[in-house]
Design a protein around this nucleic acid. Sequence first.
DNA 1: GTTGACAGGTGTACAGCGTATACCTACAGT
DNA 2: ACTGTAGGTATACGCTGTACACCTGTCAAC
Lengths: 223, 223
Amino acid sequence: MTQRRAPLSRDLVLRTAVTMADRDGIESLSMRRLAQALGVVPMALYKHVANKEELLDGITDAVIAEFAPAELTGDWRSVARARILSARATMLRHPWAAGVIASRTQPTPAALAHMESMISDFRAGGVSAALTHLAMHTIGSRIWGFNVEVFASAPPPTDPAQREAMIRTMGAAFPHILEVAMAAHHTSDQIVGDGCDDQFEFEFGLDVLLDAVDRLHQRGWEP
Amino acid sequence: MTQRRAPLSRDLVLRTAVTMADRDGIESLSMRRLAQALGVVPMALYKHVANKEELLDGITDAVIAEFAPAELTGDWRSVARARILSARATMLRHPWAAGVIASRTQPTPAALAHMESMISDFRAGGVSAALTHLAMHTIGSRIWGFNVEVFASAPPPTDPAQREAMIRTMGAAFPHILEVAMAAHHTSDQIVGDGCDDQFEFEFGLDVLLDAVDRLHQRGWEP
DNA sequence: GTTGACAGGTGTACAGCGTATACCTACAGT
DNA sequence: ACTGTAGGTATACGCTGTACACCTGTCAAC
């Protein structure tokens, strides 16, 4: 007899979905294609997840579960910083995850747990609850390991001629954008809008924010 | 004879789409429903926009066009601040717009123009191109008038009993989240996750960032 | 004044999506 | 031996975006 398919399970479904999103992009993750990848009829998935929304919640949690627990050594700032950088490392492995997380309306259990840890870091460092609250809003999506880079995903043209033409028109209409893009820190003259979400920029922004919060904290900030 | 339909135009299509998104939510803005609202067959729209992506680009630009031009008085910080608060006021009128803007992969002309203005504010104030670049990344989505509030949109339960139950389970599993949510600045004890993207919080975060950039600037920050 | 191009609106059709509903089948507990 | 029940199947519905062929009214050129 031929080898039987491994039986489905919620866990297998979610893991397969994550793999599929990693390989083919989130936009081609459909219930039908996922079912096919599992060698199963589409409706079979519905015995393990209620619907597609719950599937997306599930893979969100799967990704968040990859965040490494922070080491609890040092001051609250370095603990928080390490936790966030670990989140970021995870998000870099799953480029689609930022968009999915941002599309969830209800926080999933894993998401709540991450927020809880994040907040405890601040509170354990003596930061007041009120300041922590504002800090969380201010740091925003960075605690999930990504900047929301609006217009992030288009790579620049590779053809040098095309690129130069782009620069010229850009310079005519939007000189300041061009200038600032050229001044970008990252690897040489990669030019306009190549994603730009470099580690350096992420950490710069993160440290600016943690600095600011710490300074307010030291000064005994109150609402 | 019966009154003829007003002839279609790209502008009319886009304006109607914005109205529809305002009233029924972005998720119910489909080409078919939009066509119906215009008293026209679905395919008629394709004479005015190439496809749905271009429609979304179009309504993005329509919203950005509502940003009020900043008055060019005062230091660069207040000019930038005013520009951003105007963007925010616009986004509050079109709650769906943040999601759509965040979903665009290529910047639209109006988006580029807004960035250009934003950057000029910094450069005119003498902020270096390199620092301006990092500042733009750090301020991030705030220049579009919104925080990316992950898990923002679910209102809390209105039933007091249900609410108290929620608080209890919350407190058991995630005590710090609860504490911090209770410490929230906004209108009284509205509790956990009522959107929370208050004006106060937005401005707090914005000022923290502008402060930080200004301080770096004053100190003559270099890459 | 006829012709021809063309802009703008129509009609039909297709592939893909999420998922409701009913059904089957193998195994577990009594 | 009987009966749930968990897990996989088959069919079908309504919705989506949009390709393609078609028609029709307007306007310019001859």
